Every structure is written in C-alpha cells, then in structure tokens.
Amino acid sequence: MTGSKRSSAEIDPRRKRILFRCWHRGIREMDLVLGAFADAEIASLTDAQLDELELIMSEEDADLIKWVTGEKPVPEQFRTGLFPRIAAYTPDFGPTILNREERLA
C-alpha cells in the first residue's frame, strides 16, 4: 500500500479494505491523514468505530481536509467520536495547502 508502514496480513478482510481505502483517497493529504490513523489504529477499532470510520470516509476529501486543517468548522456530527482522533494524526502541512490553494486561485 502506498505510504503504509503496516502489514495487512494479520487483519480481517474488512479492515484490509478500509486500510487500503484510507491510503488511496484521491487527495494525497487525506491519504496521509487517514492512512496514518489507520496504520496506527485499524487493528484495535471496534465494529462501531469501523462503521464510523467508513461514514467519515464517505465524505468528500475537499471537505475533510478543510475540517482537519481548520479552514472550515467540523460539522456537529463529527465533533465527537473518531474524527478528533483522526485529526490528531495530521502532519503539519497547513502552509503547503494554503500555498497550493493560492496558486490555484
């Protein structure tokens, strides 16, 4: 898996699928955020937390990255539970995103 430092050999098929999807988002920054979280936590998440992670993953990458970087407020439904834990795995790439967005404008 691109970027993953975790072997998926010892985890069940659902967790393998989620781990793969976390590292193949479409926006590299979200690969790094969700992938880093999944590498560290996927084996210990409960079924309910996996459901929540899949719900978070169903959101658009453009929205997720804005919530993680603080550019937009996190919707109420994601302010508790798993999302704050995911956001805690965020590398400091805020200036890179801002510079890229300024160049695209």
Rank of each mutant, 00 (worst) to 15 (best):
R85Q: 09
E76T: 13
L53F: 08
M57T: 06
F78P: 00
S44T: 06
E54W: 05
R85F: 01
G81E: 12
G81L: 14
L64S: 07
K66E: 14
A43M: 07
M57H: 04
L50R: 11
D63A: 13
Q77K: 15
L55D: 02
D61N: 15
P84F: 00
Q49P: 05
R85Y: 10
P75I: 08
L55S: 04
E54V: 08
E76I: 13
L50F: 05
A87K: 07
R85S: 07
E52F: 11
K72G: 06
R85E: 03
A87F: 08
F78K: 00
A87L: 14
E52W: 10
L45W: 00
T46K: 03
L53C: 03
L64N: 02
A88D: 08
I65A: 12
P73C: 11
T69P: 10
E59H: 11
E52A: 15
I65V: 11
Q77Y: 10
I86M: 06
E71A: 15
D63L: 11
P73D: 05
E76N: 03
T80Q: 12
P73F: 10
S44K: 15
V68P: 14
D63E: 09
E54T: 04
V74F: 10
D51F: 08
E71W: 11
P84C: 00
L45C: 04
T46G: 06
K66S: 15
G81D: 07
F83A: 01
K66N: 15
Q49V: 08
E52S: 08
Q49M: 06
I86V: 14
I65W: 07
I56L: 01
F78G: 10
D61R: 02
S58T: 07
E59T: 05
Y89A: 04
L82N: 05
Y89N: 01
G70I: 14
W67T: 03
F83K: 00
D51C: 06
A88R: 08
P75W: 04
